[in-house]
Structures are given as C-alpha cells and as structure tokens.
Amino acid sequence: MKTGYIFNIKRYAVHDGPGIRTTVFMQGCPLHCTWCHNPESRPQMSPNLYPEQAQYCLRPFYRKIPYKVAWRVSISELLRELRKDLIFYEESGGGVTFSGGEPLIQPEFLHQLLLACKKENIHTAVDTSGYADWKTFQNILPDVDIFLFDIKILDPDRHKKFVGVSNKKILDNLDRLLQLGSRVIIRIPLIPGITDTETNLQQIADFLKKYEEIERIDLLPYNMMGEDKYKKLNQKQNMVRLHHQSDYELKQIQSIFVPYGFEVNIGG
C-alpha cells in the first residue's frame, strides 16, 4: 500500500523518543480510552471517508489543519516531509516516530514507511498501544529501532472497562518483543483515578519487574490538551474535569518503580 491516512505531523517532537524527532500521527485506533488525547484520530478511516482532504498535498503545512480531518498521503510525499529535519536527527540522535491513533492499524503502510526510513538511515520509533496481531509486530520488527509501548491498566476487567478491549494481547505482545530483544520504552499515561492509582501502578511494576531489558519507563502526566480538543470537536468528554498531578504526587509515583531498578522519567 503506497498511501495511508494521517491526521498530523509534528516537527521538533521532543517527547516521542530519543533526540529531536518528527512524529507522524496516523489515523485510526482500535481502542476506546475514555480519556483519549487524540479523539480526532478515532473515526475509522476508509479511502472514501475524506475524499476532499485526500487531495491535500503535503505542501500546505502552514495551513491550520482543521480538527476532524485526516488526509491521505503517499509514502514518497510523507518521506519528503520527514527528510526535512534530517540534519536535526543526525545532530541529536533523533529520527521519526510513528504514533497515532494506533500506527499498527495501518500495517502495510507503516511497514513500507519503516522500510523507506531505514533505507535512508533514519532512526525509527513506533509509539503503540500494543493492541495488534503479533503477525503485524513481527513484520515490522526488523525496521523499528525502538518501541514506545503503552501500558495503561493491568487489571483485565478495569482495562476492558476504561480502554474498551482486553489487555491480554497487549501484554503478550510486550513479552514477545522483549524476548526477541527489541528496544522498548514503557509509557504509562497517568490518568487521575484511572491509571494513576497506587494499586494499578504497583501491579504494573510487579508485572514489569522481570524484564530487565526495559530501557526506561516514562510516566506521562495528565495534560489538558485532550479536553481542549474535545471542545473543538464539540464532543462531550466522557469524564469529569480532572486535575493535574502535583510534582509531589509525581515523585511518589516515580518511587513505586525506582526500587525495581528501572530508569523512570516524568514526561516523555
């Protein structure tokens, strides 16, 4: 597949892996997290869904991209954009991050993109919810330099309740990736009252402790951006207004993981 759907590109992305990166936000996500930051990514894409946007070429990035818009790009168009910051990637040890939505929901497109990046010696990261068939992971594995792998909730029932799907597949995939020696950074979004509870975080820590190979754990403090976007999308966010974690709370959370020997970062 030579084309795919994206809903944003962010240059000088500094929270999506090592160095200075360009992050491609790919359209579509199989999860239904109640706190989703990128609600615009959720509508399932189909080639006919946004015929008008499909003709956007990549040129008008100065355009304020209206929310609720994804557009179709070809690999070569996208690559032209990704190449632009090559000098910054090289200087900083950065590269390209494929995020979303869920990038693995467009498996062939993602695969082709990764191949193209590797061909040009561009460092690649995939920011994933982990919710995909193992086959898909297997396919892209050789061309991903690092995974940013989300772990949200360990308890299966609560996961189903707040994320909309079972976490079995996710945890299995993580296990296999680590077994095969992939570089993995774990990312835990801290959603007040949902993922940031002591029980949940302790369960995650207990689950992860056997994997010494984990490069780092990033704790992602809750941010208000999602709420703002919901307003723009005229959707009601499915939850009450939440507060930010205080620095003290963040330090407390950090201290749950540190005793297991993990490097723990606050923020990406």
């Binding site: 500094v14 200075i20 000098i87 910054f88 900083s92």
Partner: peptide, 19 residues
C-alpha cells in the same frame, strides 16, 4: 525545563550553526 530538554535545544542550535 530538564536536562533532556536542554540537550535537544543544544542539538537544535548546533544544527542551525551547521547550516
């Protein structure tokens, strides 16, 4: 704000100067 942020701004400046 943090070490990592500073390191990235250093790279940003070095890249601009390379150009």
């Amino acid at each position: 704000a943090n070490e990592e942020g500073l390191a990235k701004v250093i790279s940003l400046i070095r890249s601009y100067f390379k150009m």
